[in-house]
């Protein structure tokens, strides 16, 4: 197994059926994918294409890659009724998430008012001319959505048995190192050293949304990165954590965010709607709920 650092998290790559040299070469290939993607789409890099788009005051021509990501995001926005919305960049900055996250670095004594509401549907995407125009108040943040897509791209290039784990957004392919599936430990949001439940997966992706790690102090309260697009502020949910298992990391990532915002009851209902989807929901009172297509091996 090989690791590298990208998108402000540790990425682990394993391909147990390959030779050591081939596994390392594959890990390097994945690292390059992450690096190239981050250079184009990071909102924290002033030289990224996304930063240029967020600075533009008129219509701008975008790359084919950017166009594809924006169109995919729009589909999720529409499917989620706007609960998934990458137009939360200004809200994240107002909440204090104005630079790459480091524990403690975002702490502040004052809290800013939320910005005027912005909706991703206000973004004008002209596929014919590959031009995009945004309202000036609309700033795009592709965050975890992009990480999920990158994991999916890496998995598409992976050998039959492989794992790509980008800080908890992961895809597992094949039967795993022991031939009986890949094991996935679901972390306890109240105690990162404790595993709540272990799942066994084959050819699946997994992603988690929780406010327990990317959080910072604003005055006497704590803010986090899960913005509710309806309010433009860090979400208040009856859930402490949602882990979703789906066919792709992109879909798992979006569903985890939406389920978190919908809360324990509606979130579980959302995950149960799709037979290909499963999940583990942890309520704020610690109640554990396992939903849909997941195999629990240890609880």
């Amino acid at each position: 197994m090989w690791t590298f650092h990208a998108m402000n998290t540790e990425v682990a790559v394993a391909a147990p059926r390959l030779t050591e040299a081939a596994e390392q070469a594959f890990a390097r290939e994945v690292a390059t994918m992450f690096d190239v993607t981050e250079r184009r789409f990071s909102r924290f890099r002033p030289d990224s294409e996304l930063s240029a788009l967020n600075r533009a005051s008129g219509a701008v021509a975008v790359s084919a890659e950017m166009l594809e990501v924006l169109r995919a995001a729009r589909e999720h926005v529409n499917a989620s009724g706007g609960l998934f919305d990458p137009a939360i960049g200004a809200a994240l900055i107002a909440a204090g998430y104005d630079r790459s996250f480091v524990p403690g670095a975002l702490d502040r004594d004052d809290a800013s008012a939320p910005p005027p509401p912005a909706r991703f549907t206000e973004l004008v995407i002209d596929a014919a001319t590959a031009c995009v125009q945004r309202p000036l108040a609309l700033l795009i943040d592709l965050g975890g959505f992009l990480k999920g897509r990158t994991v999916d791209r890496a998995a598409a290039a992976a050998p039959r048995d492989a794992m790509i784990d980008a800080g908890g957004d992961a895809v597992v392919r094949g039967d795993g190192p022991e031939g009986d599936g890949w094991l996935v430990d679901v972390e306890d949001p109240a105690d990162p050293d404790h595993v709540l439940v272990t799942l066994r997966l084959r050819d699946r992706a997994v992603a988690t949304s929780a406010p327990n790690r990317r959080r910072w102090r604003t005055g006497s309260r704590f803010a986090h990165h899960l913005i509710d697009p309806r309010t433009g502020t860090p979400a208040s949910s009856t859930l402490a954590q949602v882990t979703v298992v789906a066919r792709s990391a992109e879909r798992a990532e979006v569903l985890a965010k939406v389920a978190f915002l919908r809360g324990a009851r509606d979130g579980a209902r959302l995950l149960a709607e799709d037979l290909d989807v499963g999940g583990v929901l942890v309520a704020r009172d610690g109640t554990l709920q396992v939903v849909g297509a997941v195999e629990v091996v240890d609880a």
Binding site: M1, W2, T3, F4, H5, A6, N8, T9, V11, A12, V13, A14, P16, Q24, A27, R28, A31, T32, F34, D35, R45, D47, G144, K147, M163, D165, A166, G167, G168, D169, A170, V172, G176, P177, W182, L183, V184, D185, V186, E187, P189, P192, V195, V206, A207, T208, S209, A210, P211, N212, R213, R214, Q241, T243
Partner: peptide, 24 residues
Amino acid sequence: APITRPRVGRAPESRPRRVRTRSS
């Protein structure tokens, strides 16, 4: 920024080949 490809290193032997979910 200068191009600096992520450095790929071997994971510690103690690290199991399994996923640990977390919000990141």
